[in-house]
Design a protein around this nucleic acid. Structure first.
Length: 491
RNA sequence: GGUGAGGUAGCCAAGCGGUUAGGCAAUGGUUUGCAAAACCAUCACACGCGGGUUCGAAUCCCGUCCUCACCUCCA
């Protein structure tokens, strides 16, 4: 039996108990990319949030059907492709392929379905025909427009009133300034699909309505996307679908907050202030990026600056260090006995570990509050580190740290973090940071080896000089109890 | 102008009527050949401002000042 949870619903502006249409099942649709450019770190937030949310739901026992579309037929795609002398669909496909590679690298699971506009023409035309037949849409000069004034509760998601909207582009043939295109007549040289209104292509909003219906049914449980899609995109989807099928479209609307720059201004393609996810992934491990997104509540704006990823990596490294220490512990006694013998710190890590699952999932159950859920993990990690300083922890500590190890496993299955072994993680960090600074690994390791030789003969002057040289290259040397390690500075 | 979100210690950020959230930075300490990492302590009895309700408010109510987003393509 799946576990209940609560979710903020943009439609009602309240956190509500989630009630599924069909017991045990969640039908989730999330607006994906319009593929005319690279995926940036703002898009990636939405992708990671809904990937993590899906993992959490499945962990909680829900059967999730997750659909995320690609908009591969669109004005901007066509304009950009023709500018470069390329076929628009091939141009879009190129970015879809890149998106898949980057999302795999980011550690995303594939959605159940990834429909494309170009594959959904039948469903789109069918819905438009229904809307025309029902009097909610009208053809004019090869275009088909949706008539917002025929939709009684138009504006219910964004609380807009038709008569107060600034009127959009003044296109000939439109009956009302806020009417929007369902079908656009093709101009010469543009890709076109046949229809009873003449050759053309779908408008932006109709595709999602059609794909939702085709893959998930007439009414779905949760519709997600970025907060910037509330109006007009999601508002228009509701209008089209509810006028077309005369049933509610989506029961819960879940919107992720946007990435913001200094001063709170949002990051967006139109503002030209974006960082591609490819760039971030080349310099930081995927899980550091994931932690950056998930350490904030998904609805809050998330500030982006040059410290964001270094800070997230610092946090993640500390957590992996705790995991590594816990994994290194041995022993197979009764946990209570070990806790009794080794003192307060052992007892603390045992108790925090045992209480973790409940606290972690309770936070996720309350509007997917990963910020609070992760705070519990930091408490646990500190307890592990504190206990690890005990001189008998390594030999006998395993039993008291076993619940903590399970906590890290829970993070992997419920949020997609800690999917690597700690040594693997450290290796990834090193290679990405070296690449980010353009450093040569062999040269660094040669200097380190030379320094180790100097230390063996207690030639501290030489050893420290080499450490300074490495520091100048932004390499920090760590002399550990069982050898030498190093890392690349983050500032 | 319309609609919505928000203002929490140096910075970021949970909480939303009564128990130290958490992170990052900084400073001191333990440790170390010296460092780094880790741990401990401090910064932190903080909640835009002014009233009110309450035994009790960051949390509720009224007023007020700011910030951001959407209303045009945007995750």
């Amino acid at each position: 039996m799946p576990h209940p949870f609560r979710l903020y619903n943009t439609l009602t502006r309240k956190v509500e108990d989630f009630l599924p249409i069909e017991a045990g099942k969640v039908r989730l649709y999330v607006c994906g990319m319009t593929v005319y450019d690279h995926c940036h770190v703002g898009h990636a937030r939405a992708m990671v949030v809904f990937d993590a949310f899906t993992r959490y739901l499945r962990h909680r026992g829900w059967e999730v059907t997750f659909v995320r579309n690609f908009t591969d037929v669109d004005d901007k795609i066509i304009a950009r492709a023709l500018e470069k002398g390329q076929d628009p669909l091939a141009f879009a496909n190129h970015f879809i392929d890149e998106f898949h590679v980057e999302m795999a690298e980011l550690g995303l699971e594939l959605p159940t379905h990834e429909p494309r506009v170009s594959d959904s023409m039948d469903a789109i035309r069918e819905l438009i025909e229904t809307l025309v037949a029902r009097g909610h849409a009208y053809p004019a000069g090869g275009n088909v427009w949706f008539s917002v004034t025929t939709c009684e509760d138009y504006g219910k998601l964004s609380n807009q009133r038709v008569d107060e909207l600034k009127s959009g582009d003044d296109v000939q043939g439109k009956a009302h300034g806020s009417d929007f295109a369902l079908w656009k007549a093709a101009k010469p040289g543009e890709p076109a699909w046949p229809s009873r209104w003449g050759p053309g292509r779908p408008g932006w909003h109709i595709e999602c309505s059609a794909m939702v219906c085709k893959h998930l049914g007439e009414t779905i449980d949760i519709h997600g996307g970025g907060l910037d899609l509330v109006f007009p995109h999601h508002e228009n989807e509701i209008a089209q679908s509810e006028c077309g099928i005369a049933k509610p479209y989506a029961r819960y609307w879940m919107h992720n907050g946007l990435l913001t720059l200094s001063g709170g201004q949002k990051m967006g393609k139109s503002l030209g202030n974006v960082i591609n996810i490819h760039t971030a992934l080349s310099e930081f491990p995927a899980e550091a990026i994931r932690l950056y997104y998930l350490h904030n509540q998904y609805r809050s704006p998330l500030p982006w600056n040059s410290d964001a990823l270094p800070e997230a990596l610092t946090m993640l490294s500390r957590l992996y260090d705790a995991l590594e220490k816990a994994q290194a512990m041995q022993g197979d006694e009764e946990p209570e006995r070990v806790a009794k013998d080794l003192g307060e710190d052992a007892l603390a890590v045992l108790e925090l570990g045992r209480g973790f699952t409940e606290k972690f999932l309770a936070a996720c159950d309350q509007d997917f509050n990963t910020a609070q859920a992760l705070a519990h993990l930091f408490e646990l990690a500190r307890a592990v580190n504190r206990f690890a300083a005990h001189k008998k922890a390594k030999k006998r500590g395993r039993p008291v740290v076993t619940p903590a190890l399970r906590a890290f496993e829970l993070l992997r299955s419920a949020l997609g973090l800690f999917t690597m072994a700690p040594n693997e993680f450290h290796a990834v960090v090193k290679s990405k940071r070296l690449a980010a600074l353009g450093l040569d690994r062999a040269a660094v390791e040669a200097k380190l080896a030379e320094r180790t030789r100097a230390r063996e003969t207690k030639d501290w002057a030489r050893s420290d000089a080499l450490r300074d040289e490495l520091a100048a290259l932004k390499i920090e040397v760590l002399d550990l109890a069982d050898g030498v390690d190093w890392r690349v500075q983050l500032d």
